[in-house]
Design a protein around this nucleic acid. Structure first.
Lengths: 215, 215
DNA sequence: GACTTTGTTATACGTATGTATAATTATATT
DNA sequence: AATATAATTATACATACGTATAACAAAGTC
């Protein structure tokens, strides 16, 4: 029987939306996109499935919101470190690199979530816009740090050079991020940030080794 | 009515399996993994859906076969260039890099296929084995080329240095491959291989610029 | 305390999916 | 030409999915 309706507490729209988004990301991370159905999402969020359509006009819209949340979270996690005070521009850049190559940014589940959205990014206009926005924001920030580091060393270069350097360094970070997420057990502790610092140091002709850095 | 059975021609097991695998990859590339159902796959391959279960014990097994096909194809496409004759080790390495950063290796659909399999790779043992095998094969080949190029320049280094260099160069190639696939229109013609050669040149302390290369 | 609003649940609907199995037909063998 | 083999089609089945809609209940307002 159990004709009695389940008891529940009302919550603010923000909270509920956030809970649904977090559940979506968690399910995609652990079981892939096809594991994130309206039923599993709502169950994980502790609500019934009808509520999803109350906050999002469709499942696609929920996925778009989840994607934006995830991407913003990842880029912000790296930027946050870079916004704290640093003695100089090179230290600033070094902190940025290390942050991009250590958890929680480098993470199996974060990578799986990112990959799970790719096919939507290629098809959905809104997803594409989010992707471009977060990608360019990250790369532009990296380019600004490179520019400042070069200027500090009395070695300022053209913006075209800066652009190429930013593309290269960004690719290196992405590649290491990818491999660290895909095969986490095949890299030693601190190997990723070390490789990243050495390689970017070589590309930019900057030496990061003699800088003390607060862990 | 159309009670008449469709006419058909028998084909060798290899052909049919290959056709089903190709259809699977095509559908994943263009519509994501959830677009590759047993019905769409069989329709695209010009057969009826029952045939899939005749050649593969389950859809998962077909996906595993498709993943192995795709990954092998991609790494082979890069290696093939590197096995042709070259004047010296540096030219050899240069050809390898360019091949890895131009079509058909750099390709939106190839990247989408790769991403579409990620969540299976993290869960299925067989998928994981394929992933590791192709990854290490590619990286080991790159490391061998780096080793030869260094030796040729009279600058031989330890295998630990070679390993770190291979990880870095591989990451750079992967990152550029990723971004070229994800945002193809945001890079100028030849920008990816140029950035790749300059960056790897800086990392390895090798100059690729004064080498004529047959397009 | 009655009333309104809307957050939330419950249920239903049509369709798509992976799998299983039986029926058929093309090809090889003799 | 008859027969056997297995490649291929056809059909059925249980389940899962996204969506739509109606019923209910919690909290605010007067």
């Amino acid at each position: 029987m159990q004709n009695a309706k389940r008891s529940f507490v009302r919550q603010a729209a923000d909270k509920r939306q956030q809970a649904l988004i977090k559940s979506t990301l968690h399910l995609i991370a652990t079981g892939g996109p096809e594991a994130a159905t309206v039923r599993t999402i709502s169950e994980h969020a502790g609500v019934t499935q009808g509520l999803i359509r109350h906050y999002f006009s469709s499942k696609d819209e929920l996925f778009i919101a989840a994607y934006e949340c995830h991407m913003t979270q990842m880029t912000d996690a790296t930027s946050a470190v870079a916004t704290t005070d640093h003695d100089n521009a090179v230290a600033h850049l070094k902190a940025f690199i290390i942050s991009a190559l250590t958890p929680p940014v480098v993470d199996t589940e974060a990578m799986a979530i990112w990959a799970g959205f790719i096919h939507m990014v290629q098809r959905d206009k809104n997803m594409r816009a989010i992707h471009e926005k977060t990608y360019y924001r990250f790369r532009d920030e990296l380019q600004a740090l490179i520019s400042a580091a070069w200027a500090e060393a009395g070695n300022a270069k053209s913006s075209a050079d800066e652009r190429r350097a930013a593309i290269a360094c960004n690719a290196l970070l992405d590649g290491l991020w990818l491999e660290g997420g895909a095969l986490p057990e095949s890299f030693e502790v601190n190997e990723l940030p070390n490789v990243g610092l050495n390689s970017i140091g070589a590309i930019l002709n900057i030496d990061f080794s003699n800088l003390e850095l607060s862990e």
